[in-house]
């Protein structure tokens, strides 16, 4: 039951950025150009007519070179960018793991940051309190939990971020190369946790430059090139195309 239920619909999404062409140094210059309507922007379409749908339990790998629009696509799906045209429909709770610990405050201690970042992700206080010990244990930061975050190493910070973000079981999981968090030991642990989510049928969007990883984790894939989808389908087929492209 629910096997073929849609989890995510991306309909014809395009997003345009204006890159200002010339540097206007003064307000006067700006006003003159503005009145003459001479301010020129380079239009830049970071995404163009991107459409795809995912069923529940699908794991989509997003491939592409740097600047192809992979992260922009994830941010549109996470709701950070609003598409210039097109729509994104999500069915279920989304866990964006774009950059772990985006809501952290360096002056706050680890303990305070758990509640702050948890609130950013939309969790309730009771929930965070009940999961607090689990978060601390998973991140292995018992000794440092009352130390301000600015004294943490980047690995410690990422571990804490990962532990908080994965404390819920979301319906849609967005992974932007976060599987490379921390040392080898923690990497194993975090991969195990992600895998257990996979087993429970979570829908995944996964960006990685490692083709091998995408093949291992995903069942579907798309290739983005200059903001457009140039190939999509089963991971094996798409991976082959990608291999030839990057030769």
């Amino acid at each position: 039951m629910g096997e073929n239920k849609l989890a995510l619909e991306v309909n014809d999404v395009s997003i345009k950025f204006n890159l200002s062409k010339e540097k206007l140094d003064s307000l006067k210059e700006y006003m003159i150009k503005f009145l003459k309507r001479q301010i020129k922007y380079d239009e830049f379409w970071a995404l163009k007519n991107v459409s795809f749908t995912l069923n529940k339990g699908d794991r989509l790998g997003i491939l592409g070179l740097n600047g192809a629009g992979k992260s922009t696509l994830l941010k549109v799906i996470a709701g950070v960018y609003k598409p210039t045209t097109g729509t994104v429909k999500k069915h279920g709770k989304i866990a964006p793991m774009l950059e772990l610990g985006a809501g952290f405050d360096p002056q706050y201690t680890g303990r305070e940051n758990i509640f702050l970042y948890g609130a950013v992700l939309g969790f309730s206080k009771e929930f965070l309190k009940s999961k607090y010990d689990e978060i601390v244990a998973f991140s292995e930061l018992e000794k440092f939990i009352d130390v301000p975050l600015k004294n943490y190493s980047s690995g410690m910070r990422a571990r804490l971020g990962f532990a908080i973000a994965t404390i819920v079981e979301p319906e849609i999981l967005i992974l932007d190369e976060v599987l490379s968090v921390g040392d080898a030991k923690f990497k194993k642990k975090s991969e195990a946790r992600i895998m257990s989510m996979f087993d429970k049928g979570v829908t995944v969007l996964f960006v990685s430059h490692s083709l091998e990883q995408v093949k291992r984790l995903c069942n579907k894939a798309i290739i983005l090139e200059q903001g457009q989808i140039v190939a999509s389908g089963d991971v094996e087929e798409v991976a082959e195309i990608y291999e030839q492209k990057t030769k």
């Binding site: 002056q107 706050y108 509640f115 702050l116 609130a119 950013v120 206080k125």
Partner: peptide
């Protein structure tokens, strides 16, 4: 309602950090 805790956390952060140290 969903972000009530975040609002409160942000308010608390402002107060806490204003006089910390």
């Amino acid at each position: 309602c969903q972000y009530r805790l975040l609002l409160w956390e942000l308010v608390k952060k402002g107060i806490k950090l204003k006089y910390r140290r």
